[in-house]
Structures are given as structure tokens and as C-alpha cells.
């Protein structure tokens, strides 16, 4: 994820991650997806609905849960924006990677609380991520 975020700098990257849902969420694999946003990709990302459909199919085919979405904030803190909140859906973890001048600075994860309509930060324990 961080490599994708750095390679995409100064544009925002986006991708899905998959794994197991339990008391904690374990990420097993992440997959890049194209930022389909028309216009300024340095401050916006969008996923084509067809790509989303493929992401759900990948999860089902591999017996994994689609746990969430990662995206980068180029030269910006790893905190969700108003725009991120407005577009957030329940259940998903939203990983945000802050990339400062091309180098990963900070990684955070957030989940929407559907009762308060606010993001709550999740704790991250980083091991090694696979990538396919």
C-alpha cells in the first residue's frame, strides 16, 4: 500500500484490502485499483463501479472479506477529510497514507460510526503485507 501511495505521488492512490474479520481485522492481501476520478487526482479519488464489482468477486472467489479501502493524502495529514466522511460507507476500514514529498509519513485507519456519522480511529499493527 505504501509503495503504491509513493509511486502514485503527487496523485492520490486507491486500493482495496481483504482478509479476515474477527475481534480484530487481519489484512491478508491488498490490491491496487485505478483512480477513476475525472479532474484533479491530487486531491480526489474515485473507484469505477465495475472495479468495485470485481473487488467483491475477488473476495468471494478467494474466501476473504473485503475489509476496506486505502487511499493516500499527498502532502497532507493522514486524517479523513469532510469529503472522505461524506462518501464513507458502513463497515469498511478506511486506511489513509500520508505521503510527504514522495515518502510515506504516517498511516492511520478509520471506521464510520453509523450512529454518530463520525469516523473513529482504529489501531494498526503492521506486519508484512502480501500483494498480488
Amino acid at each position: 500500500m505504501t509503495r503504491h501511495a509513493e509511486e502514485t505521488f503527487p496523485d492520490e492512490c486507491v486500493g482495496f484490502f481483504y482478509g479476515k474479520e474477527g475481534n480484530d481485522r487481519e489484512i491478508i492481501v491488498s490490491r491496487e485499483v485505478s483512480n477513476s476520478k475525472d479532474g484533479d487526482k491530487r486531491r480526489r479519488f474515485e473507484v469505477d463501479p465495475f472495479d468495485y464489482l470485481q473487488a467483491e468477486k475477488f473476495a468471494e472467489k478467494n474466501g476473504l472479506t473485503l475489509l476496506g479501502i486505502y487511499h493516500s493524502h499527498p502532502n497532507h495529514p493522514a486524517k479523513p477529510s469532510e469529503h472522505d466522511l461524506k462518501q464513507a460507507v458502513p463497515f469498511f476500514s478506511y486506511i489513509i497514507i500520508s505521503v510527504m514529498e514522495g515518502t510515506t509519513d504516517k498511516i492511520t485507519s478509520w471506521q464510520l460510526n453509523i450512529d454518530t456519522n463520525e469516523f473513529e480511529e482504529e489501531e494498526i499493527n503492521i506486519n508484512e503485507l502480501d500483494k498480488v
Binding site: 492520490e12 473507484v47 479501502i69 493524502h73 462518501q87
Partner: peptide
Amino acid sequence: IPAIAGGKN
């Protein structure tokens, strides 16, 4: 399919 979008500002 939920619309997936966002961005830093």
C-alpha cells in the same frame, strides 16, 4: 454497488 470516493480536501 456503493459509490467509493474521497480525497484530502
